[in-house]
Amino acid sequence: MLLVFARPGVALAQYEVLTDRTTITLAVVADPDVPGRVNLRAEVVSAFGTGMPDGRITFHDMATQRVLGWTSVAQPQITVEGLAPGRHMLRADFSGSTGYMPLITLPSQSAEMPLDILVRPVLTLSSSDEVIAPGGLVTFNVAVAGTAGVPGGAVTLRDGDEVVIAHLRLDQAGMAAFTTSALLSGTRSISASYEGDGRYAAAATQIQQQVTSPLAAVTPRR
């Protein structure tokens, strides 16, 4: 509370200016389908537990010292597009308000929220032979590539819902291979699921593998 008095020589008078402390919190939701798209929503609450009638909210990326956008407390939400891969530290600032004098709402800052934006990798899966006989050997090759260096991590291969090999580690070139003779006859749906790492998001792909019928391998008698 601030007491303001009139100047000397003027009739004695005083009035009261009240200050109201505020708290701002930030919620960050990344779009799982669009790398770099993030929804930012802030909430400003007064010390009396009520919302703010006016004032501006500014969203910052403290890692890059960039202002991401601003909005009013009436609509305290924005969507940011195109955040670069890497670690971001996001913060929301409330400007305060003098629009309801003699009540002054004080400015406030939210805690910094860490956000990691991952690169979407290019995942390829190939077979050493498109058609094999029952019990025949086939090698599945997986390659993971992207713009943030050689990916690390592991992949899991599946035949339909059945796991062929789990957590197969990528090598120093971002590749992995696995050989099996356990595929059953028919058209097999072979999938590779990349688990991601600190720079790359998870990804999946699949191919069709033909395994001939045992009867097709028998030469009919004449």
Rank of each mutant, 00 (worst) to 15 (best):
T25D: 14
G49D: 10
G55M: 05
T23N: 11
M52N: 00
R41K: 15
S46Y: 09
P32R: 12
I57E: 02
R37K: 14
T50Q: 12
S46C: 06
H60A: 08
G51Y: 06
D31A: 00
D31S: 06
T22A: 08
N39P: 00
R37A: 09
D33N: 15
P53H: 13
L26W: 09
L26Y: 10
T22E: 05
H60K: 10
E43K: 13
F59W: 06
A30P: 13
T25I: 03
V44N: 09
T23H: 13
A27M: 14
F48A: 15
T22M: 04
E43M: 09
R56T: 08
R56G: 01
A30W: 01
T23M: 09
T22C: 09
A27W: 02
E43H: 11
A27P: 05
R37Q: 15
G55N: 03
G55C: 05
P35H: 07
P53L: 11
G51A: 07
H60W: 15
I24E: 06
R41G: 06
G55D: 05
N39R: 14
G36R: 03
E43V: 11
A42G: 11
P35L: 08
R56H: 05
M52S: 13
A27Q: 12
A30F: 03
V28M: 07
T58N: 00
D33E: 14
G49C: 08
V34Q: 11
R21H: 10
V38P: 02
R37M: 12
V45N: 04
G49Q: 08
T23L: 10
P32Y: 10
N39T: 15
R41L: 03
E43F: 09
L26S: 07
N39A: 14
P53W: 10
S46M: 09
V28C: 11
T22H: 03
A42E: 00
G36P: 05
I57P: 06
L26I: 07
A47P: 00
V34M: 05
V45I: 15
A30H: 06
R41S: 15
V38Y: 03
V38K: 04
P35I: 01
E43Q: 15
H60E: 12
R37T: 12
P32C: 07
F48D: 15
D54M: 04
D33F: 05
G51F: 04
D33S: 14
L40Q: 00
D61K: 05
N39S: 12
V34K: 13
R37V: 05
A47C: 03
I57K: 02
V28Y: 08
T58G: 05
R56A: 06
M52H: 09
R56V: 07
T50R: 14
F59I: 01
F59K: 05
G36W: 01
D33Y: 02
D33I: 01
M52A: 12
V44G: 06
D31F: 02
F59V: 02
F59N: 06
R56L: 11
T23Y: 12
G55I: 03
R41A: 14
V28A: 10
D61F: 02
